[in-house]
Simulated scan of single mutants.
Amino acid sequence: MNEILKEFEHYVQTQQYDNADSLIESLLQNSVIINLERREALTFLYRIGYVYPETTLKLCNQRNDIPRPFKDTLRMASGDTPSLRLYSHADTLVSIKTALMRHKPWLAKIFVYRFYRQYGLQPISLVKYNKLTIGNNHKKLKKIKNNQTVSIIVTTYNSAKFVENCIDSLLNQTANNIEVIVVDDASTDNTVEIIKKYPTIKLIELNKNNGTYYARNVGISQSSGQFVTFQDSDDWSHPERVSIQLQDLLQNSNTVANFSNFFRVEEKTGLPSCRQNYPLLRLNISSMMIRRDKLEEIGGFDDRYRIESDKRLLNALLLKYGKSSISYIKLPLAVGLLRNRSLTTAKDSGFNKYGYSPLRDLV
């Protein structure tokens, strides 16, 4: 980490936000950004881009080696609509977002099709009414025979608005031998009634709300699969997610667990978005698929905490089995819902405008 980023993070973590603002503003008056190595410059600019999009764009213009898609996301965050450009792979999401902002849903549909094709995945039409709509597609794909059972554990809490999309995506997986377990963490809406409409799903109702990780551990204890994976109740999985992650584990006996990528869709606007602005395609920490015996060895999730225990579990796996035991499948195998009331965005558990959470820093 370069020194200027260290200084910025120090001000943020000690909540000296005026000093952080002054530091960034001072960069416009000197050549610090110009003199940084490209990798260091990008790391810094990506970090501050969602805090100060307009200032960051000005800093980007001091160099000629900054990715154009990143600058487009800064323009979007500043309230502008950039020119429509055709990007590739992960940056296709920037093209999709621009097309929707310019009210060209037909073009966004083409870009979505191209996006999945570039990754060798079956294309899914997610565009509806000039928005990306999770669960819009119900395309049935050919099932792939797998002898091993995969247990998929979903935890719910007042998830009535979006849980059907989540479950439908799991029941539409190409993997044919799956067990879907939904653990409801004492919802007060009609989530449970919705789940009961699915006769093949195993529903576990908790009487007290103890948090996602406690509920996941309950689901693990009641599952039977040789492999276990997870999905948040406001996420949607591509039909090939489970089969691709399973094949990775079957083909690599030394791999203990794997993760895949996803992008998020903002609930209100229907646009691909992320808290950090860029890149839009990111690691999906909730997508972990793990061998049951290794999960039992590690002891499951640390459910003393309501946040960040998925990262704790990953760190425990790395410590016990080493970096080579974890595989990262860089394919867009899920779509998440970016909403105001999630653990990531809620005032008491989420990040503030500076990308800092005092509560998460404590744990």
Rank of each mutant, 00 (worst) to 15 (best):
E3K: 01
E3Q: 09
I4F: 02
L5H: 13
K6L: 07
F8V: 09
F8Q: 03
H10K: 14
V12A: 09
D18F: 02
N19P: 00
A20W: 01
L23T: 08
L23K: 07
L27C: 09
Q29K: 15
N30E: 11
S31P: 11
I33T: 03
R38L: 13
R39C: 10
F44Y: 04
F44R: 10
Y46V: 12
R47S: 12
Y50M: 12
Y52W: 13
Y52E: 00
T56Q: 01
L57V: 01
C60I: 01
Q62L: 10
N64M: 10
D65A: 02
P67Q: 15
R68F: 07
K71A: 00
D72A: 06
R75C: 06
M76A: 13
P82Y: 01
S83D: 11
S83C: 08
R85V: 15
V94F: 09
V94D: 09
S95D: 05
S95A: 09
K97Q: 15
K97T: 11
T98Q: 07
R102A: 14
K104P: 00
P105D: 08
A108K: 00
V112S: 14
Y116F: 15
Y119N: 05
N130Q: 03
N130Y: 03
L132I: 15
I134N: 07
G135M: 02
N137F: 02
N137K: 01
K139W: 06
K145S: 11
K145T: 15
N146H: 10
N158C: 04
K161A: 12
E164L: 00
N165H: 14
D168S: 11
D168Q: 08
N176Q: 10
N177I: 05
N177Q: 11
I178R: 04
E179C: 01
I181F: 06
V182D: 12
V183I: 10
N190A: 01
E193P: 06
Y198L: 07
P199D: 10
T200N: 13
I204T: 08
A215K: 03
A215S: 14
N217A: 07
V218K: 14
G219I: 02
S223K: 07
Q226H: 08
W236R: 06
E240G: 00
E240D: 14
R241L: 14
V242H: 05
I244N: 12
L249Q: 05
L250M: 14
Q251H: 09
N252M: 05
T255Y: 02
F259G: 11
N261T: 15
E267R: 12
C274G: 12
P279D: 05
P279N: 04
P279F: 02
L283Q: 12
N284K: 12
N284S: 12
S286K: 02
S286T: 10
R291S: 14
R292M: 05
D293A: 08
K294F: 14
Y305G: 02
L317F: 13
K320E: 13
G322R: 11
K323R: 13
I326S: 12
Y328D: 09
I329E: 05
L337V: 00
L338G: 01
S342T: 06
K347D: 07
G350A: 04
K353R: 11
K353Q: 04
